[in-house]
């Protein structure tokens, strides 16, 4: 197969675009992992759920797309708070397996509901097919807007964590929860908010991704593994690291799709993940 420079260029550009969405999704996992020390195994299911929320509103009920997106993100926010108290709070500080299992259980419940309501057929959300040429590569306008939103949210998250009172409280809790409590930080509220924030990023990424690709309830699993890979690449709890990690993964995936074939794309992610776990489990950009 001949791989033209245009194809490579196209792969690079779409890698960056889609990768920033992967990065945003990963940020959701990363914050929860970093702050609560919980690996949220409902991450993928939440992403899938947000996709179906957008689908239901915009395709089935004809709600304008921006409104559908906002509604999906808001629902994710409320769900995040509820999920914290139902599935996370009780297993904090327990054995690692307990939090893995309870969040996984929550994910299965979501998946079960999606399977029940929508079945396994792939769904697509019709969007404007308007295309823009970026360095000889045709990219859909919607995707570019999505990427811009993702970058903006990630930068916002960075500012929130490093420039605000809330961010200071979060980092205090990460360093020493007991001491923070003594100093008047409401630790439970910080934990609940951090979890909710993580869910919020996941559903935002999911809502935007729903416009780029078709999806089934199973689709979330793929994004969940991508998010792990990116977290391992970018380091825990580091918004900009997630963004960069996401873009690296996006490029690797898209280039593989261009050069080899689309179905090999995910494999690259798993290989990156395994190599990173061996070589540098603290991530490329982890703070020491």
């Amino acid at each position: 197969m001949v791989v033209s420079p245009e194809l490579i260029m196209g792969g690079l550009v779409s890698g960056i675009i889609i990768g920033s969405l992967y990065g945003l999704a990963a940020l959701g996992l990363s914050i929860i992992w970093g702050v609560l020390k919980v690996v949220n195994l409902s991450h993928g299911a939440l992403i899938a759920l947000s996709m179906y929320l957008v689908y239901t509103l915009s395709v089935m009920y004809g709600v304008p797309l921006p409104v559908a997106l906002l509604a999906s993100i808001l629902t994710g926010f409320l769900l995040g708070i509820a999920a914290y108290y139902l599935f996370v709070h009780r297993v904090l500080g327990g054995p690692e397996l307990a939090s893995l299992l309870s969040t996984f259980g929550f994910g299965l419940i979501i998946l079960g509901i999606l399977e029940l309501a929508f079945g396994g057929i792939a769904r697509t959300i019709p969007v404007s097919q308007h295309v823009i040429e970026v360095g000889h590569a045709p990219i859909m306008l919607v995707q570019i807007i999505g990427a811009i939103i993702a970058v903006a949210v990630a930068v916002g998250a960075y500012l929130l964590l490093y420039r605000t009172w809330f961010g200071r409280a979060v980092r205090a809790v990460v360093m020493n929860a007991e001491a923070s409590a003594l100093m008047g930080v409401n630790v439970v509220r910080v934990l609940a908010l951090s979890f909710t924030l993580g869910v919020l990023f996941a559903v935002t990424a999911g809502s935007l991704l729903s416009l780029a690709y078709s999806f089934t309830p199973e689709t979330g699993t793929k994004y969940e593994l991508y998010s792990f890979t990116i977290v391992v690449l970018g380091g825990l709890g580091n918004p900009l690291g997630s963004l960069v990690g996401g873009i690296i993964l996006g490029i690797a995936e898209q280039l593989t799709s261009v050069i080899v074939s689309g179905s090999w794309g995910p494999l690259v992610a798993f290989l990156i993940l395994l190599v990173m776990l061996i070589v540098r489990p603290t991530g490329l950009f982890a703070k020491l």
Binding site: V91, A98, L101, G105, L108, I109, E115, L116
Partner: peptide, 20 residues
């Protein structure tokens, strides 16, 4: 038959939270 994932999920979360 269609509820099995949901039931799985509830079971797992239950074990994790109540009977680890």
């Amino acid at each position: 038959p269609s509820l099995h994932l949901i039931i799985f999920g509830i079971t797992i979360a239950f074990i994790a939270e109540v009977l680890p």
